[in-house]
Computed example of a mutant assay.
Amino acid sequence: MSNIIELRDVWKRYDTGGEVVEALKDVHFHAEPGEFVSVMGPSGSGKSTMLNVLGLLDTPSEGTVLLDGQDVTDLSDREMTTQRKRFIGFIFQSFHLIPTLSALENVEVPTLFGDDPTARDRATELLERVGLGDRLDHRPDQLSGGQKQRVAIARALINEPQILLADEPTGNLDQETGRSVLDLFDEIRREDDVAVIAVTHDPQLSNYTDRTVELIDGRIQ
């Protein structure tokens, strides 16, 4: 099966004024459709940088990023945004829900700048799928941590991505709630053939993933 996303010989350097920090060093990485990969490593090892490069939020200093076989390394900001919307859904540890919007409206947010008459129906279906069909009109302050994470997952799926990038998706959840979120990831990747790539410190993720990649000092071990 061909890779949906791939990093080849990727380096990422930051000039901090006095010195150059190498956040990623010669990273090779890939994920196939339907594969669940976790990226583990100590704080400061480059995990978030790698996730940003995979999510087309940051460009490598050297190397190549391939998305569905296409080289996307040197696209313009506008082209990057188009590819992100087409291929990638993001899930964050702190949920990033808009407090004044209902669960349904939060899920619809990524569709607001397009003309999509089916968005509300899709958002409703996704919330039902993640077990929140009875919480459509609840604002984030009326939801538990696990429910907020499920809203965030539904929002990440609204544009029907082929890749889900998750940054510490169980970091703010108790163990049981975290397991239910991981069950949901497992269902999504099996039923929708979505690649799930999760940066995590949570050892229970390895019970769900196809493989774990360890990143230490910017290098994959």
Rank of each mutant, 00 (worst) to 15 (best):
Q162F: 03
D183V: 08
L104Y: 14
E128P: 00
T59N: 10
D71V: 14
G178F: 05
W11D: 10
I153V: 15
G146S: 10
S102L: 10
G145D: 06
A23Q: 08
F87K: 04
M40H: 04
V37Q: 09
L67D: 03
V213P: 00
L66P: 01
R8S: 09
E62T: 11
Q93P: 00
L57Q: 09
Q93A: 08
I216F: 11
Q221M: 04
T64R: 15
D174Y: 15
T118N: 14
A31S: 14
T170W: 04
S43Q: 03
T124Y: 12
L164S: 06
D9H: 15
S43C: 02
V37I: 15
Q149F: 05
I88G: 01
F36E: 01
G178Q: 01
E32Q: 13
P140I: 07
R139S: 10
A154P: 00
I5W: 08
L7W: 07
H138S: 13
K12E: 01
Q149P: 04
R139G: 08
R122H: 09
L51T: 03
F95T: 03
L136W: 08
N52Q: 09
K47I: 01
Q204Y: 13
P99C: 12
G131A: 10
R150V: 05
I216L: 08
G46Q: 00
T212H: 12
V27I: 07
N106D: 09
D183H: 15
R139Q: 14
L54C: 13
I98G: 06
G17P: 02
P33L: 11
S206V: 11
H28G: 08
L97S: 00
V151N: 07
G34Q: 04
T212Q: 14
A154G: 08
D217R: 04
Q142A: 15
T111Y: 09
Q221N: 12
A103I: 06
N207S: 15
T209R: 05
R219T: 05
P60C: 09
Q142K: 14
L66M: 15
R78S: 14
I163W: 01
V21C: 04
G17R: 10
T177P: 03
V39T: 04
P110T: 07
S76C: 05
S144A: 11
H30F: 12
E128V: 02
T170G: 06
F113N: 04
L7G: 03
E32D: 06
G34M: 02
G178I: 03
A23V: 08
F36S: 00
P60M: 07
R129Q: 11
I91W: 01
Q83T: 05
G146M: 10
G18D: 10
R122K: 14
G17W: 11
R190Y: 11
W11I: 07
P110M: 01
T49V: 04
P99S: 13
I5M: 13
D58S: 12
D74T: 10
R120C: 02
G55F: 07
V181D: 02
M40N: 01
D167P: 03
G146I: 04
F95M: 01
F113K: 05
A119P: 00
L24C: 06
G63E: 01
R155N: 06
M40S: 08
Q175P: 00
G55P: 01
R120W: 11
D58C: 06
D26Q: 12
L57D: 02
V65F: 08
G114N: 09
A152S: 13
E191M: 11
L75K: 12
Q162H: 14
E187V: 13
